[in-house]
């Protein structure tokens, strides 16, 4: 029986068709997806903090409105993704609990601080740019609900990336002080953005299985290269430099060659030792704990209403 189901599943994957919630799937496939989708959802929710940090101080009302809409989109993405994860038999509260107790992770990029307004631009341009590079292939992911959520998310992310680019372009063409803010932000966000694609292929043990399952379509290094190739010309348009002396176009390969990534820093941040790991998690747990009474009240009210209606019907 189970062998038949496995054969059916393999056939769907081989035919590049979608696995849907009611289809049989191997436990390991389910677990991998739950972990990945949850981590993605958590990243959206934690990712609201570094940018939300600048909403109240945005330098014009137009920028304030755009940034509010962007942070709101991230909350919305978190919701779709928790919804996609729920189709695999877990619930949001459970997943949030795993985040709060550090048993599940979120993207390490959000463990860096946004210390100037230009960081909002750099996050949009580089971080959302890297996220799109990672996420566009997920629109063809073998798990249907995740693929469909990603289609919607990618549309909004490309708007986010444009707004980040536009913030930096305005700063870069502004006063010398504004230009300085933009360059400083790009200097700080460039390397962490490259780390968003994960460890080099040789050190990424789970990648092969995810590729075989059609969850992952390109390797970490392929995606990283794609991002660098896309971003370097944009830096030229911005008139900003990227902080890598080894960066150059390689005529032979047709790609941009870039310098060695500091993987020690990457693993430190992943392990919880980045500049904002503690702060981000504390902020999230605090919102959750301080708001718990609200959810309890809503549940109590709903129960009272149900019993009142029950009485009325009887």
């Amino acid at each position: 029986m189970s062998a038949d189901l496995q054969t059916q599943f393999d056939a769907l994957i081989d035919a590049d068709e979608r696995i849907e919630p009611r289809d049989w799937m191997p436990d390991a496939y389910r677990k991998t997806l739950i972990r990945q989708i949850a981590q993605h959802a958590h990243s959206e929710i934690i990712g609201m903090q570094p940018e939300g940090n600048w909403i109240t101080r945005a330098p014009s009302l137009k920028r304030k409105a755009i940034l509010m809409a962007k942070v709101q989109d991230e909350a919305g993405h978190g919701l779709y993704l928790y919804g996609a994860a729920e189709t695999l038999g877990v619930d949001r509260a459970e997943l949030l609990d795993l985040l709060h107790t550090r048993k599940q992770k979120y993207s390490s990029i959000f463990n860096y601080p946004t210390i100037s307004w230009a960081d909002v631009g750099a996050i949009g341009w580089l971080v959302d740019g890297a996220a799109i590079t990672n996420q566009v292939p997920l629109c063809r992911c073998s798990y249907g609900p995740y693929a469909r959520a990603m289609i919607r998310i990618c549309k909004e992310e490309s708007f986010h990336q444009r707004q980040g680019f536009e913030i930096l372009l305005t700063l870069s063409n502004g006063t010398p002080a504004q230009r300085g803010l933009a360059q400083d932000a790009v200097n700080r966000w460039w390397w962490p953005s490259l780390m968003m694609f994960g460890p080099p292929d040789a050190d990424s043990p789970n990648s092969a299985q995810s590729m075989a399952w059609g969850i992952k379509r390109f390797s970490n290094d392929e995606l990283r290269q794609k991002f660098v190739d896309m971003t370097v010309p944009q830096a030229g348009v911005l008139g900003l430099t990227l902080p890598d002396p080894e960066l150059r176009f390689d005529e032979e390969t047709g790609h941009h060659h870039f310098g060695e990534i500091d993987w020690t820093e990457f693993y430190q941040v992943v392990k919880g030792n980045g500049p904002c790991n503690e702060q981000r998690l504390r902020h999230r747990v605090r919102a959750h704990e301080e708001g718990a009474w609200v959810g309890e009240a809503a549940a109590a009210y709903a129960a009272k209403q149900a019993s009142r209606e029950g009485v009325a019907v009887a």
Binding site: M48, A65, Q72
Partner: peptide, 22 residues
């Protein structure tokens, strides 16, 4: 209202309060 962003009791309320602020 915008001070609530990322601090609301539920994700749905984060969205709602930001909507109102917008």
């Amino acid at each position: 209202l915008s001070e609530w962003a990322s601090r609301a009791p539920e994700i749905e309320e984060d969205i709602a309060l930001t909507n109102i602020a917008l």
